[in-house]
Design a protein around this nucleic acid. Sequence first.
DNA 1: CCTCATTCTTTTCGCGCGTAAAGTATTTTG
DNA 2: CAAAATACTTTACGCGCGAAAAGAATGAGG
Lengths: 341, 341
Amino acid sequence: MSSTKIRNMEEFAAVSGISRPTVSKYFHDPGSVRQSTRQRIEAALERYDYRPNIFAMNQNRKLTKNVGVVVPYMVDPFFAEIARNVEQRCIDAGYRPTLFSAHGEPSLENDILDGLRQLKPAGVLLAPLGRASDRSAIEKFCRDVPTVLFDSEIQGLGLSFIGSDNPQFSRLIVDYLCRTGAPPCFFEMKTPANPNANKRRQGYIAAMERLGHAPDIVQADGEGWDFEEIGRREGARALAAGRFTTDTVLCSNDRLAIGFLTACYEGGLRVGRGPDCAIRVAGQDDHPFARYTCPPLTTIAQDYDAISRSAVESLFAAVEGSTRAREVRLFEGRLVMRESA
Amino acid sequence: MSSTKIRNMEEFAAVSGISRPTVSKYFHDPGSVRQSTRQRIEAALERYDYRPNIFAMNQNRKLTKNVGVVVPYMVDPFFAEIARNVEQRCIDAGYRPTLFSAHGEPSLENDILDGLRQLKPAGVLLAPLGRASDRSAIEKFCRDVPTVLFDSEIQGLGLSFIGSDNPQFSRLIVDYLCRTGAPPCFFEMKTPANPNANKRRQGYIAAMERLGHAPDIVQADGEGWDFEEIGRREGARALAAGRFTTDTVLCSNDRLAIGFLTACYEGGLRVGRGPDCAIRVAGQDDHPFARYTCPPLTTIAQDYDAISRSAVESLFAAVEGSTRAREVRLFEGRLVMRESA
DNA sequence: CCTCATTCTTTTCGCGCGTAAAGTATTTTG
DNA sequence: CAAAATACTTTACGCGCGAAAAGAATGAGG
């Protein structure tokens, strides 16, 4: 590494013996220059640690290599996990991902999209808040910036939507629960944060009816993203009120189930499938902590990997040329049997 | 809102009736222009939705309004929570925070710092990986960029370090446990991710000796950031080996405790302080999920709020002028009594 | 060896803003 | 009300790069 500091591309071009426009071309796409010049540039890169000024680059390029990754609630490890997955794929594809969380607040989601617009991103991967999202703001954003929605759909918006086949989730777990014990009732939030909850409820109802059972839905009051607390508080209330007519409770999602397990514990109910157990509890998502609840939570695993891969692929396919029609890709869940049901 | 699009500051200055340099000054600091001109500019801002090009701004300013926020492992909701807190405070102070997670990988931590340097940040709030961090890389980074360390200290680096008084944590919980039952043994990772664990062990030993008890430390094998799994796997092994000589286990942190609770459950041990319970378990941190374990986890709450506030204040104080000596601020924890101990 | 397509160099312009200097207008001070 | 201080305008330049055009060098194919 030479000691002389390189101040700009002009100087770097000089020491590498290549003209500045060609060097510029190299940084834009190393494969676009001849093999021999590429080697000369990379030899110079070894000796001097020059990197193009990112602000000057982005100012003049119509399209940057920035990618926005927006999730609704980073404190939920599910979103942290999928964000990490998506982030890594963007880096591998040569882009610069930037992570944002709306922290459950619609106004913050709008602010993030507003701020993102200034970054002239090549594309955005957006997991919206859902019900609370400002549809018109997102619609406007999608018109300006290539955006792929994931996790939570907003009908008709974005280049594509990548998510889970929620009705299949419920079908799978209902089938399992009915096969191994009493038909489940369904525990959910009255006003769920996102549309996946509705699809799961419908999936539950359909699966129950197909098996000849009467669906039974228990709804919890409460707004916001503090699902565990809602599951615990309202679960306890429903238990006390004798609201559950079977010994099997299917929760709309794992976080609700985690709170409900706490309610069961505090109510003195032993959870599990053993003969000495009073109640079976199942969730949906395979939340990172589901393995560690007591008892470990039986659930349906989201295909994190397929969803993040598909979302990233879909975005870059659109960004790098091929404009296809809006597509919706839903991935199936996988039954994860643990002790709770 | 007028329909004519404003393309740049020149045009915006024209429609607001103010010269461009003055408008530029306004955007740099609205308080630096006369009240009357400020009103004229803000009146124009109402009519046209112009915003300065962020790339052009940052290119020419010696110091940007960017702030980097780096945490070691975003999938841990503790860090997600503190990141959210820090992020909001930066926004309130008029800065642009950008969130990064090293995802437990030292090479990624280095990459993040490298990428951050390009953003010419006004400052960086860094919670390092700890033991696995590349000290020399961080040292070099701190020389170039005003950096405040938090959560995990790296001796002597950064403008300041803001964290928890870990020995006090252990003292507090040891006192409580001894007061209410058998003296605890200490369950920790053999090669902990960060130095806080060492301080907690030392705090445990000191507190035990002060009370006239013999310290007993049980160490778990395993590397990395998958604390729950290590707590569960190695906790189960230690239980099976009869490694615990008392019925009270103090875990080095809540995530380890969460895994250990699972091990207890799977081993058929009833956890809690009732007469029918076989073991008491306590953690440290007040992890967001500690409230929802079964039984709910007794722990020491970190003062999230004070830590994030203090870290942000310390950074901006340094950035905005006053260069003080490196200071270390440690906040005390608060005992949170729940059912597990 | 010649032809033609690539690939490179040279030159020039522009992006949108920060910044500085010098002059003019406005406000404050005594 | 004059002098001084402050705030503004005008003009000009620079930041580091992208992009485009025209000509020179290079290399492949016949």
